[in-house]
């Protein structure tokens, strides 16, 4: 049985929440992606809802402790798990002040543990430079799932600054697990035209055609047509790698739906 791209994306995200290998959740391929997503969101709630009262009181005390001291406590004593839980309960201006005293590596540790749905105000208030530093660290670690969860909670200007620093490979990996794929068209619109080509080449270089096809399927139709035409215009080696990947991953239906956007005379190149 071949999982759909949507199922694969959701299994990757759930595996990250449960800290297990995605392969260990392969049995979820027989469950609709929407149900896997609904389960993940409930699991995050189950992880975050316990002890919220006590955590809120800790968060409230933070306003009475100097920012530098609170940051030191966060780093040396609370650690990333508890800091992440408290972050969502802080006033955004307090959280931003604490973050200013913490290195990007520790902020990245917190980011991995954070539920962005509970920290939207904090994320929106973070200075762009700090977000970019943390995103660099997460990119270095290959933490695509947390990055995909965060992008939807950042102002577009911050997203633009982050996307400008991402490699083409990172962009494909993050796009695949982006929480709200309706955002993908806006993200791709932030890229200069020459990066559209380099992203397609990265799909071949890093064996990320499923991620690239998923990206194409989720942008608006006009942009989808442009990206498919760009892919079809690539050299034979690149198109051969696409054909291999489609066969290996059982993505014939996905590719066919994209090819149908091309003028008939151009379909043979990419479809053969």
């Amino acid at each position: 049985m071949t999982a759909s791209l949507e199922q694969r994306s959701e299994i990757l995200k759930l595996a990250r929440v449960l800290w297990v290998e995605p392969d260990s959740l392969a049995y979820l391929e027989k469950v609709d992606a929407r149900d896997v997503k609904a389960f993940r969101l409930k699991a995050v709630d189950a992880l975050f809802d316990d002890d919220e009262g006590a955590l809120k009181r800790i968060a409230d005390t933070s306003g009475h402790i100097p920012g530098g001291v609170a940051a030191k406590i966060g780093r040396k004593a609370l650690g990333p798990v508890l800091s992440a839980r408290i972050t969502g309960l802080l006033e955004p201006e307090d959280a931003v002040e604490f973050a200013g005293h913490l290195p990007p590596e520790f902020l990245a540790d917190i980011a991995v543990e954070l539920d962005p749905r509970r920290a939207g105000g904090v994320l929106a208030a973070m200075p762009t430079d700090s977000v970019v530093e943390v995103a660099d660290e997460l990119q270095r670690r290959g933490e695509w799932v947390p990055m995909g969860r965060f992008l939807g909670h950042l102002p577009l200007a911050t997203v633009a600054a982050v996307v400008a620093t991402l490699s083409d490979e990172a962009l494909l990996q993050i796009a695949f697990v982006l929480e709200d794929k309706k955002q993908l068209d806006d993200v791709i619109a932030l890229l200069p035209a020459e990066r559209h080509q380099s992203v397609i080449r990265a799909a071949a270089e890093h064996d990320l055609w499923p991620e690239a096809l998923d990206l194409m399927a989720h942008v608006k139709k006009k942009r989808r047509r442009e990206l498919v035409a760009l892919a079809a215009a690539q050299d034979e080696d690149l198109l051969a790698s696409l054909a291999r990947s489609v066969e290996e991953n059982g993505l014939e239906a996905e590719l066919t739906a994209l090819i149908e956007l091309l003028p008939e005379e151009d379909r043979a190149a990419i479809g053969s």
């Binding site: 979820l28 027989k30 469950v31 929407r34 149900d35 409930k42 699991a43 709630d45 809802d49």
Partner: peptide, 14 residues
Amino acid sequence: ELGSAPPRGLAALS
């Protein structure tokens, strides 16, 4: 474990 009803689609699992 969830503290609420799992999505119905999970009934497809053994």
